[in-house]
Simulated assay, not measured.
Amino acid sequence: MQVDFGKVAVLLGGFSAEREVSLASGNAVLKALVSQGINAIAVDPKIDDISQLKKQGFDRAFIALHGRGGEDGVIQGFLTTLGIPFTGCDVLSSAIAMDKSKTKQIWQSYQLPTANYQIILKESFDETQCATILARLSGTVMVKPVNEGSSIGMAKVSNVVQLIDALHEAFKFDNKVMLESWITGQDFTVAMLNGETLPAIRMQTSNEFYDYQAKYQSTDTLYFCPCGLEEKKLAELNKIATEAFSAIGCSGWGRVDFMLDEQGNWKLLEVNTVPGMTPTSLVPKAAKQAGYSFEQLVFAILKQTL
């Protein structure tokens, strides 16, 4: 299908802790667009002057920036001000989805399933409260910087000393940290594209949890797509994913992450509004199962800007 997209900026790299992943995603997207005859050019906000995008004649932008400055509404607001259409979610939904605590609060207001949690602020952190916090959250917790992705700064802890150490480490990435009750179970993810769910993926790792190493470095992480769920349970998963994505106000494309606990209950983890886009990332895996090549997937995402 021939479409005149004009001059396309593929925004990649950036300033966040996920810069290296973003460079990989952006370069894969760039290659896929160019291979289809699209006038796409890499633009790195850390190196290039993005205030000149309009003057340089860019007609639209494919956002492949992960983390802060890319998924948090900042670049979305900037492009909106310039009048340049862009891929993915709008300013507000991007900002909300980046903040795990705000996301959870909205999901709870919709009675969507998510694990118990507590927010810890760096400025008011009191180490003497750690034992009480652990007890309230069932003794074992996942420590998560609120505004980071790719499992950066995350840790599983089950005693006070571990919790204090993990919080101090997480505070290096964010002044606001979430403590989430540990969920024993299986990891799932559902990619969203143009209002539809793509085939769900189940992830299996020998690590303690699906961490940065399991996502980007391990050679023994397993991905199952089809995910192996019975039809009724899969329908339940897709329904919750669609509702969770919509509740945040997300649109276009993205990914909703879950766990299925040992009692068979779904627990929402987070929404990714700019998921990884290397050929081996999760959304391309799901798209492939649905019959999309990587090039077709990238084209379908860019077409959202028309």
Rank of each mutant, 00 (worst) to 15 (best):
F5P: 08
G6A: 13
G6Q: 13
K7F: 05
V8G: 08
R19I: 00
S22D: 00
L23T: 07
L23P: 03
G26M: 03
V29G: 03
L30C: 05
Q36C: 08
V43D: 03
V43F: 05
P45I: 04
K46G: 11
I47T: 09
I47R: 07
Q52E: 10
F58I: 05
R60F: 08
G70L: 05
Q76N: 05
G77V: 01
P85R: 06
C89L: 03
L92D: 12
S93W: 06
A95Y: 02
I96T: 07
I96F: 07
A97R: 03
S101N: 12
Q105H: 14
P113K: 15
N116L: 11
I119G: 06
S124N: 13
D126K: 07
T128V: 04
I133W: 14
I133L: 11
I133K: 07
R136K: 15
M142A: 09
V146F: 04
V146Q: 01
N147D: 01
E148R: 00
V157R: 08
S158L: 04
V160S: 08
V160G: 06
Q162E: 15
Q162L: 13
A166W: 07
L167M: 10
F171S: 07
F171K: 07
T184L: 12
G185H: 12
D187T: 04
L193A: 10
G195F: 14
M203I: 09
T205V: 06
Q217W: 10
F224N: 08
P226I: 08
C227P: 02
G228T: 15
E230R: 13
E231C: 12
E231V: 14
L234H: 13
E236R: 14
E243S: 15
F245I: 03
I248A: 07
I248D: 12
G252C: 08
G252P: 05
R255I: 06
V256C: 07
V256H: 05
L260W: 14
E262K: 14
G264V: 12
N265E: 14
K267L: 13
L269F: 05
E270W: 03
N272K: 01
P275L: 02
T278E: 06
T280V: 11
P284H: 02
K285S: 07
K285L: 13
F294G: 01
L297I: 06
L297W: 05
K303I: 01
T305D: 04
